[in-house]
Write a protein that binds this DNA or RNA. Structure first.
Lengths: 146, 146
DNA sequence: CCCATTAAAGACATGGGCGTCTTTAATCAT
DNA sequence: ATGATTAAAGACGCCCATGTCTTTAATGGG
């Protein structure tokens, strides 16, 4: 697995809430999990972190739920990866060598660098808002199919 | 983790054996694990698979150990990844969507494709022999440091 | 032939990602 | 106010990658 399952759940959850927000309504955990066919309780944990990080907002109680805030659409994929896959994700050596770094590289460091850099750039330059922009009719379906 | 720890252990083990082979000698598991500072018993399991796949050869008994064969230097990184991270590694959707594929892509499929392709190409086009070629004096050290 | 040595094979333990359930706290409709 | 609804928080279990140990089988030295 290049990225964790948690990342997929988090991103899809955020995208779903952002899409629904066009209708100015809050979205409950049950709705998200149901629509995206994602394990409800597990998603709850992840969404809690997403809210804690300020990427989404949420209120409890009747008519409560998740909703976007001023950060949401500007959030980059790297921000989400940091939440779900850890701060160090982008620095871990492909050979799992702790001391590998640009100034003390492993034998494959330079080989892997372009691909890793490309993936990082894409994640860094892609925001939730940009993904939402490409608003195909089947968008919900495309993040719901199992 | 982009690639498993097992991949790092396998690759480093294969590289070590290949380097020692220049002195025409077999290498024991104890030597590999000791030199590379890798969990001995865990490495044993991985090396068994490496031998079973034909990437290295091995004999038991006194003066036994691991040694290279006609496949070793031509083995690509993708072959090793297939052993340690599974056949499907290169096809898994970044959002963990099972039905995501080029003809039914997730919203980020095309974004991730160039980076993934780059990594795949590098792995596919890089062989053990090519890595050995860049034979710096500190090569052993570079795959040994923890 | 016998024994030390070595990889192969299999049993078992651990840790973290993943998943489920229960309890608590907040919010709103009534 | 009260109760239904909702997210937050925490306890618990499962599975698989990782790691350890023991037993078995093969090989070569003496």
């Amino acid at each position: 697995m290049i990225l964790s399952k948690s990342f997929g759940y988090a991103l899809r959850g955020i995208l779903y809430v952002s899409l629904m927000q066009e209708e100015k309504r809050k979205v409950s955990l049950d709705e998200i999990a149901g629509q995206l066919k994602v394990p409800r309780y597990f998603l709850a944990k992840i969404m809690k972190e997403v809210v804690k990080a300020g990427v989404l907002s949420a209120t409890r109680g009747q008519q409560g739920g998740f909703f976007i805030n001023s950060n949401t659409l500007n959030t980059s994929l790297t921000t989400i990866i940091r939440l779900t896959d850890g701060e160090e994700y982008f620095n871990i050596c492909m050979l799992s060598l702790q001391k590998c770094n640009p100034s003390n590289p492993c034998p494959l460091h330079s080989k892997f660098e372009p691909g890793r850099q490309e993936l990082f750039e894409v994640c860094h330059n892609t925001t939730i808002g940009m993904v939402i922009k490409n608003n195909k009719p089947e968008f919900i379906k495309s993040i719901s199919f199992h």
